[in-house]
């Protein structure tokens, strides 16, 4: 089987496509293989992954009681 090598530069250029799962499975697997053997690219991918998780967490916020009462009132009138 032909082993293809992807450069660090290509991995960094396509890192967000990889993290967003916006690439074909062959390229994704190639990047995964690269990350397994390249410490620098792995560190960067982990950093971006953790930052993404923190950004995703910002979508969780305790709803104010005022809003909960408002929604309850709206549903009662349906």
């Amino acid at each position: 089987m032909k082993e293809s090598w992807i450069s660090c530069e290509e991995v960094i250029t396509r890192l967000f496509d990889y993290l967003d799962r916006e690439m074909d499975s062959d390229t994704s697997a190639e990047i995964e293989r690269h990350l397994e053997r390249c410490h620098d690219c792995f560190s960067r991918a982990e950093f971006e992954r953790r930052l993404r998780e923190r950004i995703a967490t910002s979508g969780r916020q305790e709803a104010p009681q005022r809003l909960r009462r408002r929604i309850k009132n709206i549903i009662e009138h349906f």
């Binding site: 969780r60 916020q61 104010p64 929604i71």
Partner: peptide
């Protein structure tokens, strides 16, 4: 809706 309220509001 009640269960999802925090995420709906957060988003």
């Amino acid at each position: 809706v009640t269960c999802l309220m925090d995420r709906l509001y957060g988003t």
